[in-house]
């Protein structure tokens, strides 16, 4: 039984390593520090721009920060929050980010 459980854990990781080839996110696939994303979040709720402290409290990520795995991880957190905890207090979010120092890209929520 123990061997089966351990093998299942390892097999899960094999699946996630393969799955990562088809999606932009990098969860459970052992891709640490493989992408450097520098981002800035501009968040508006009811027409008011949130402060850095408020952004961090909302998404548990700094307003201006880096992610060492994938920009998708930051997007997942923002989108996940807005689709669940933030439904009754929706925000308009603009995330400006650079991947590995390249040209700036923009991601918006709600997506247009």
């Amino acid at each position: 039984m123990k061997t089966i459980v351990a093998a299942a854990l390892l097999l899960f990781q094999v699946v996630m390593i393969v799955y990562a080839r088809f999606v932009p996110s990098r969860y459970f696939c052992w891709a640490p520090f493989d992408i450097q994303t520098e981002y800035k979040l501009q968040v508006e709720v009811d027409g008011r721009t949130l402060s850095g402290k408020e952004v961090r409290a909302r998404y548990r990520r700094p307003q201006n920060g880096t992610d060492n795995r994938s920009p998708q991880h930051v997007m997942d957190i923002v989108q996940g929050y807005e689709e669940s905890y933030g439904r009754n207090n929706p925000a308009r979010v603009v995330m400006r980010y650079r991947v590995n120092g390249k040209d700036e890209q923009v991601w918006r929520w709600p997506q247009q």
């Binding site: 990781q13 696939c29 052992w30 493989d34 992408i35």
Partner: peptide
């Protein structure tokens, strides 16, 4: 698995193969 996942992810990443990631980092 950790080393395979880490190595293969980098191998399949253009910015790693070209050195762009490492230069920026």
């Amino acid at each position: 698995l950790v080393y395979f996942g880490a190595g293969s992810n980098k191998l399949l990443d253009t910015d790693w193969r070209t050195g762009v990631f490492f230069q920026n980092w």
